[in-house]
Amino acid sequence: MKNEKNIAILKDMAESVRTCMFTTFSAHDGFGSRPMGTAKIEDDGSLWFYTNEYSPKTKEISKDEQVLLAYSDPGKNTYLTVKGKAELVDDAVRKEAYFSPFIKTWFPDGIEDPRLILIKVTPEEAEYWDASASKIVVLFSMLKAVVTGDTPDLGKHDTIKF
């Protein structure tokens, strides 16, 4: 039951933003991040992305499967990081099921593009901050903390495991 709750938090926060900074590691270049749109989040919490099979990130994933995804929605004051293991998947059924016209921008031949491959990220741990109360409520909490010397209540913060 706990894992279902954690997956629900992950899905809710990541689906509301859709685009994350996808960070990989290369022994030669160190950390590398790039914005990537989330194609699908499955019920088991796995996150799926489209990419070019010959991109630097696929080489990095082939050598080091650990990745970090960072989702941010400053307008709602919500933030999510996901640590997980990435793998390259060439699955025609999923390519078709998760495809959207937006992907066609990078892959004009659609799911038939020979460079098109999927990245599956299996989450291991996530950390989130959710202060989605109105900015007035957050500001009031901060001002109250200044006056009382207490710590302001800026919403929920937790680390969750999968």
Rank of each mutant, 00 (worst) to 15 (best):
S16D: 12
V17Q: 09
V17G: 00
V17F: 00
R18N: 10
T19P: 02
C20A: 15
C20I: 03
C20M: 05
M21S: 14
T23M: 09
T23Y: 15
F25V: 09
S26I: 10
S26H: 09
D29K: 01
G30K: 07
F31T: 12
G32N: 12
G32Q: 10
S33N: 07
P35Y: 11
A39M: 03
K40D: 00
I41A: 01
D43F: 14
D43G: 14
G45L: 04
L47E: 05
W48I: 04
W48H: 04
N52W: 07
K57E: 07
T58P: 07
T58I: 01
K59Y: 14
K59C: 01
E60D: 10
E60V: 02
E60M: 01
L69I: 06
A70Y: 15
Y71A: 09
D73H: 03
K76G: 12
N77F: 09
N77C: 11
T78S: 03
T78M: 14
L80T: 02
T81H: 01
K83F: 14
G84A: 05
G84W: 06
A86R: 04
V89T: 05
D90E: 06
D90R: 06
D91L: 05
D91P: 02
A92Q: 13
A92E: 06
A92M: 13
V93G: 01
R94N: 00
R94F: 10
E96H: 03
F99W: 15
F99A: 02
S100R: 04
S100A: 09
S100P: 02
P101C: 01
P101W: 08
F102W: 12
I103V: 15
T105V: 09
W106L: 07
D109N: 13
G110E: 08
I111L: 00
I111D: 07
I111M: 05
R115M: 02
L118Y: 07
K120C: 04
T122C: 06
E125R: 06
E127M: 03
Y128A: 15
Y128G: 15
W129G: 07
A131G: 15
A131Y: 06
S132N: 15
S132I: 08
A133I: 05
S134E: 10
I136R: 02
L139N: 08
S141W: 06
S141Q: 09
K144L: 00
K144W: 15
V147E: 09
T148H: 07
T148V: 06
G149H: 00
